[in-house]
Design a protein around this nucleic acid. Sequence first.
DNA 1: TCTAATAATGCAATCGATTACACAAAAATA
DNA 2: TATTTTTGTGTAATCGATTGCATTATTAGA
Lengths: 342, 342
Amino acid sequence: MKKKTTIYDIAVKLNITAATVSRALNNNSKISEATRELVQKTALKMNYEQNKVALALKSGKSYNVGVIVPRIDTTFFGSVIRAIEEELYPAGYHVIICQTHDIESREVENITTLINAQVDGILMSISSPDIDLNVINQIVKKNIPLIFFDRKKDIEGVSSVVINDFEGGYKVTKQLIEQGCKKIVHINGNPKIKIFQERCRGYKHALKDSGLAYDEKLVFETKSNVEEGRRVAKLLLAMDTLPDGVFSSSDFTALGVIQELKENGVKIPEDICVAGFANEPFTKFMELSITSVDQSPLEMGKMTAKVFLEQVNNKEIKIEKKVVLEPKLMIRKSSLRKVISK
Amino acid sequence: MKKKTTIYDIAVKLNITAATVSRALNNNSKISEATRELVQKTALKMNYEQNKVALALKSGKSYNVGVIVPRIDTTFFGSVIRAIEEELYPAGYHVIICQTHDIESREVENITTLINAQVDGILMSISSPDIDLNVINQIVKKNIPLIFFDRKKDIEGVSSVVINDFEGGYKVTKQLIEQGCKKIVHINGNPKIKIFQERCRGYKHALKDSGLAYDEKLVFETKSNVEEGRRVAKLLLAMDTLPDGVFSSSDFTALGVIQELKENGVKIPEDICVAGFANEPFTKFMELSITSVDQSPLEMGKMTAKVFLEQVNNKEIKIEKKVVLEPKLMIRKSSLRKVISK
DNA sequence: TCTAATAATGCAATCGATTACACAAAAATA
DNA sequence: TATTTTTGTGTAATCGATTGCATTATTAGA
């Protein structure tokens, strides 16, 4: 097993000191052109590669950035991370990912581990709305840039990149209303989580703006999966008068609703218009494609990374940035009636 | 900005040396119970946290593992990485992800960066079949455990975890034959990549075992996306006699084929049975669910991580492990005829 | 009581790179 | 030629934790 060449090896070989080697390699101005070239050539010949760990210890920078998400195997988070990685890579940073699986203790653990690993920043999407603020404070106090994306918490000194969930909820609901829907159901996620609160608020606002009454019996709380969608659909089918529109805060519940309704002979979008949220790939691929709201994960990831870079490159200045991306409504068959009823 | 407490701070406070502190914290046997407790208590009080970077420099271990994949935002790789992360986390390792975007130079770059970052191992899925063997050798020579998953290359001393693509191709084709298909098309991916070669080989073998002739005009080479599926479907529609079965080596091409065929009035599965490969979530969600082959990404990730741990914990012994997982055929509507024709 | 063995701690080097400061050599100026 | 600048290198400390080898304190044994 061959040992790695260090600047000392080069120094010995050239009969100079490691300091000179280091300066030559870093293109320090106070070095003669001759030695610079000689050192660089020798370094190349000896397959020298800078030891980043030593550098990290010396400089206090690890060039690693921690990313914490509930889980990585969803299209949304996968895409966000992809974009983060792509933006950070050219700047010399690497991404360390951690998953919380929505377990609160895991969130705290992950943060601790990342801090110990000396990451230069933490980008995270909060899993639990009741996250321990002490841990967050630990990060802030240590002056480690912290940026929330998608799911945030308003904390002094912490930047965030989110989409306008209110606007998303508003737009979808408006579209359903434009299609002639008058009795619109909203399938909510965990109402303790802000993004769901906001989507719901958008829904209510759209109703109000169109002169439709808000009826809380038409709002259902779910765990955002296919089965829960089917469950809600059954409840809808049991109603005296069927609703004519469903805005689901998750594509998965929307899918469950559609499956269950169709199996019971309900025509979509003729009888009921359905729309989801997140723009999961399958919504586009279905034969009956599903209207959804695109959260621009790539853009979100890119922005998050940019905010981090800005912050890390201006350590002296305290920057607090709140970026809000606009959601894009993707109108598809599930909520597009051929003939718009008046 | 508060500095982190180091063992020196503790040493000064207790009027002992850093060496003693280090030993006390590491439960070294040669330390008195009294100092051990005192040090640990003080460490806790002073919020001491071990500096992993210093440890890494000293020990030569970083407790970071590099994972290289073509891209992270696909269900398959997302799931594999998730499983890797879950398996490695309890062992104290962190995962650094890199994407190649199928660019060969990126692959080399990533490897170099990971080596510089002093990772303790590299887990990778090869993007380019023509990957530079010199880089691979660099890893092997440095004694850094290297494990291929999903897409491998047979290299001495390198372990791998893959699925039996041959078997996958065989099983799908057999199922189509059992449904009465006699003229079965195969949509291939990049034939330079081994996994596609193997799936194709399985296809041929199944034909042969069932007494069906292999016709190379029925095999199409594609880039494995929806558009290419549509392209092939158009070619099929132009044939004198329509095929009655399609085995696609990608779910996306299968989807494209189905979309195009249906738009042209072809009934699936009655006229043509279609099957894909990879078990992407949408294959299950479609109204006309698509038959596919599950590659057990979670298992693959778990196994890959396990092989790594084995290797890293037995540095003296050279272990070379070749794990082959069995694919699972997911029979769905797209290839399941109600009445099986003889 | 004195020596030998053992337990507990200190000393100092090490991992590899960076950098403030010191110093010598060369070049510029008087 | 003597003096001041400038330029290029060397010296040595630093980042934080670990560890082989002293060294001292304590206990056991004779």
